[in-house]
Nucleic acid binder design. Structure first.
Ligand SMILES: NC(=O)c1ccc[n+]([C@@H]2O[C@H](COP(=O)([O-])OP(=O)(O)OC[C@H]3O[C@@H](n4cnc5c(N)ncnc54)[C@H](O)[C@@H]3O)[C@@H](O)[C@H]2O)c1
Ligand SMILES: NC(=O)c1ccc[n+]([C@@H]2O[C@H](COP(=O)([O-])OP(=O)(O)OC[C@H]3O[C@@H](n4cnc5c(N)ncnc54)[C@H](O)[C@@H]3O)[C@@H](O)[C@H]2O)c1
Lengths: 210, 210
DNA sequence: TGTTTGATGTGAATTATCTCACATGTTTGT
DNA sequence: ACAAACATGTGAGATAATTCACATCAAACA
């Protein structure tokens, strides 16, 4: 291990490794080789070893990796050894589905605030116990609840404005579901989820026939 | 332009360019330079020119690109000059939200079939007019309705099984929302949508503080 | 204790992707 | 008709990411 710039792709793969390892834990697998893990994750074994080598030596030569240890290590690397408070902005179709979804909590992501502008939604109590606030209260509530990551599920036209407000409120991690490229200062990290791009990619592959 | 292998990243960016160009069209922008488009999309101008150059010469030197033409060209490249029939497998929380979402149709993706195993859901008529079928009828209905792409929104444990059935039914494009790596033959192209990975990536960036 | 087996960790080679820099062609203005 | 301004298209160079190949160490076993 040496100090080097970590490829973005490595970080994403670490998530996948962790997910797969957690499944294995439930099946009482104690030790795993990079080869087996690689097959399961659909990557090259050397890739896994190299990804991990950016951060340390976690395996035992001739043996493999202890599944449990590796999960702990990867969580440490990714910063998942602590809870992360989330805020949802836009409690519509998609926002509600996400709020209802239990998987986030399981991974340490906790919805602690939700915002909308629709009077029919503001004040409503959600299944997970939180109450929908008006967007006007965004900054106040986000600071009060120590939210660190904002999820944007408003219509596309509103997304940039919401992003601006989030940044002002001190947020520097945004997961954006609206199909627009939002612009933020460097201090803020944005990830986009855009299903249509993925569909376009499938359409392309089917069209060129490979 | 010459014949070369197209980077996957190029295909994904073409989607983004197209989306941005379509917005511009609505604001009556007729011509755009790679520089302006690049800024809007958050990429390097040369990148855009190179991406397009894989497929032809679409611009006018000294002028830029005609927005309308470029949209048409990119659609041609991606295979979006025709409708694509989709099937949704798993009409739960997320599946319903997607089915209700109008944006897909706007881009030429049409839900023509939906499947579930829950007796409470099978037979139900959805807002978009289609009726939920039992998964037992998967192959039959998919062939009948000429579905080309399958969206998996079942619980993770079911995803691989569903993928197998889809492949048997002749599908070779899958958009998988379940948080597992599904294995398919080479003829089938899979794209994964996993929000948790994106959250992990944000958590990492916030943790290392950059 | 020595040998064989097995799987990690990593430098080097390869492959993929991005960016630069400028020649090329277009338009505008004089 | 010519020059100046502009923006594309692209070869070459730089950078990044992946894969190979093997030295290295741990365990098992004779
Ligand atoms: N639903 C999907 O399956 C899906 C799929 C892909 C992308 N998206 C994107 O996700 C976003 C939301 O989609 P949806 O289907 O949930 O739409 P929706 O209309 O059901 O929900 C949007 C919600 O945002 C609220 N809102 C509007 N302006 C707001 C503001 N300024 N501040 C706070 N809240 C505001 C609305 O009141 C509404 O409740 C859209 O950008 C859409 O393109 C959705
Ligand atoms: N809801 C979210 O916001 C969200 C976010 C990220 C990922 N996901 C993933 O998406 C998937 C679905 O999530 P959800 O919240 O909609 O779950 P859900 O339980 O609400 O819906 C799952 C649906 O699949 C159906 N189903 C189960 N087995 C099936 C089978 N063999 N064939 C067909 N249908 C079957 C169930 O009857 C149910 O209707 C899960 O894998 C989940 O991890 C969901």
């Amino acid at each position: 291990m040496k100090f080097a710039k970590i490829p973005m792709a490595t970080i994403n793969r670490l998530s996948i490794y962790m997910r797969t390892l957690q499944e294995m834990l439930e099946e009482d697998v104690e030790v795993i080789s990079s080869e087996r893990l690689a097959k399961q994750c659909g990557v090259n074994p050397a890739q896994i070893r190299k990804d991990l080598a950016y951060f340390g030596e976690f395996g035992v030569r001739g043996v493999g990796y202890r599944v449990n240890d590796l999960v702990v290590q990867i969580k440490d690397i990714l910063g998942l050894n602590r809870p992360w408070n989330l805020a949802m902005i836009g409690v519509g179709n998609l926002g509600s589905a996400l709020l209802r979804h239990g998987n986030f909590t399981k991974h340490g992501y906790i919805f602690t605030a939700a915002f909308d502008v629709d009077p029919k939604k503001v004040g409503k109590r959600l299944p997970n116990g939180i109450t929908v606030n008006h967007v006007d209260e965004l900054e106040e509530k986000i600071k009060e609840k120590e939210v660190l990551i904002g999820l944007i599920t408003t219509p596309a036209g509103e997304a940039q404005g919401i992003a601006n407000q989030l940044v002002l409120a001190g947020i520097n991690g945004i997961l954006n579901f609206a199909p627009v490229q939002i612009q933020v200062p460097d201090c803020c990290h944005v990830e986009n989820v855009d299903f249509t791009i993925k569909l376009d990619s499938i359409a392309y592959h089917l069209s060129v026939g490979s």
